[in-house]
Design a protein around this nucleic acid. Structure first.
Lengths: 198, 198
DNA sequence: CGCACGCTATGACAGCGGTCATAGTAAGTG
DNA sequence: CACTTACTATGACCGCTGTCATAGCGTGCG
């Protein structure tokens, strides 16, 4: 049980997230996930006895943790942390991807929300949890930058909302403009929330 | 050809939009659309020889026009038009729906983007067009409120992005908080873009 | 009446989806 | 060696999907 787990199972969850963010949940098949992960088809029912629902939920959870972890990395990369700087990094992750590999993929959490929010209760709970997991470190980073606590939570929600919406628009237009626009317009607002002291 | 068209065909396009915004494109079946519209199944291939792709595209176009038309109504409802007031109305349409009928539905354009952006070229073009159709009157409204032209386009993109993202988060959390938060936090920024004159 | 045209009605088809059942391998343990 | 446990391998099943083919209705026109 101790660390035998860096093999097929993990790869399948990762592959599921990859395929979901590209084609949506319904259009992503189990066999396709196994093939994409280079994992045997028989392992699906072994590792995910809960079926597709379980696999999708784990993919969503994985995506939430991934996004949260990125926040720490973004902060570490900033010479002098500011709210606008953090948001610019969050946006840049997407503009980089879109400019280098194209507009094939969106956010898997958003995809799962759109496809399953009404039909699958457990997945709806998973996406809610994923957004919370993602938003929390953003809000925490803002408070560390002298943004008042209640304001920080609200601005974190605004940042994630604007980013998610801009991702959708960017994919639709096949242009990163919505992403860069959102980063540029929101930057000053975010920085203005910091408490100034002499 | 003149106005014989308020029957089954239009209802099917409308029903398609309804079902897509609830379950996504892939999970919405043709037979289901016909049933929801109270239209005969045989009419599908008659009115939409292009198949599901055509039906989905028309639903997206319809949604884009609908959103654009709402902008004019929102403006008319405002005693004194301001950017924040317009955005508040746009958001309120969603909070009203979610509070009265629940969180079953999201934005059909976003759903089509998530599900078809990579798989179906014509639908991707349709969603891009829908976003443009929607954003244009918003930008125009801002310029009418003395917001400089380039700034108006950028802010319109920001408004739509933030709204779309907040819709996704609200559905995930089954809580309108992301929507109200976004409206509150973005309001001052939007109003500040108006040119003041003595 | 005859014919055309717009629309509807079914049924069939081929494909793919997730899931289950069953059997098989391989390694480790006593 | 027997036996368990972890994992893999297939194949079949059933339901559903989009699409096509074909035939039927009903109205209006000549």
């Amino acid at each position: 049980m101790a660390v035998p787990e860096r093999g097929a199972r993990e790869r399948m969850v990762f592959s599921a997230a990859q395929l979901i963010r590209r084609d949506g949940v319904a259009a992503t098949g189990m066999r396709e996930v196994a093939a994409h992960a280079g994992a045997p088809r028989g392992s699906l029912q072994h590792y995910f006895p809960g079926g597709k629902e379980q696999l999708v939920n784990e993919a969503v959870e994985w995506a939430g943790r991934y996004a949260a972890d990125r926040v720490a990395r973004f902060l570490a990369a900033l010479p002098e942390p500011t709210p606008s700087g953090l948001f610019a990094e969050m946006v840049r992750q997407w503009t980089d991807e879109y400019e280098s590999v194209g507009f094939a993929g969106g956010c898997p959490v958003a995809a799962a929300t759109v496809d399953c929010a009404e039909s699958t209760a457990s997945t709806r709970a998973a996406v809610a949890e994923a957004f919370a997991t993602w938003t929390a470190p953003v809000a925490r980073a803002l408070t560390d930058m002298r943004v008042p606590e209640e304001r920080a939570a609200a601005l974190a929600t605004l940042m994630v909302s604007a980013l998610e919406g801009a991702i959708v628009m960017a994919r639709a237009e096949r242009d990163i403009r919505p992403l860069t626009t959102v980063a540029r317009e929101l930057g000053p607002l975010l920085d203005a929330a910091m408490i100034q002291d002499g």
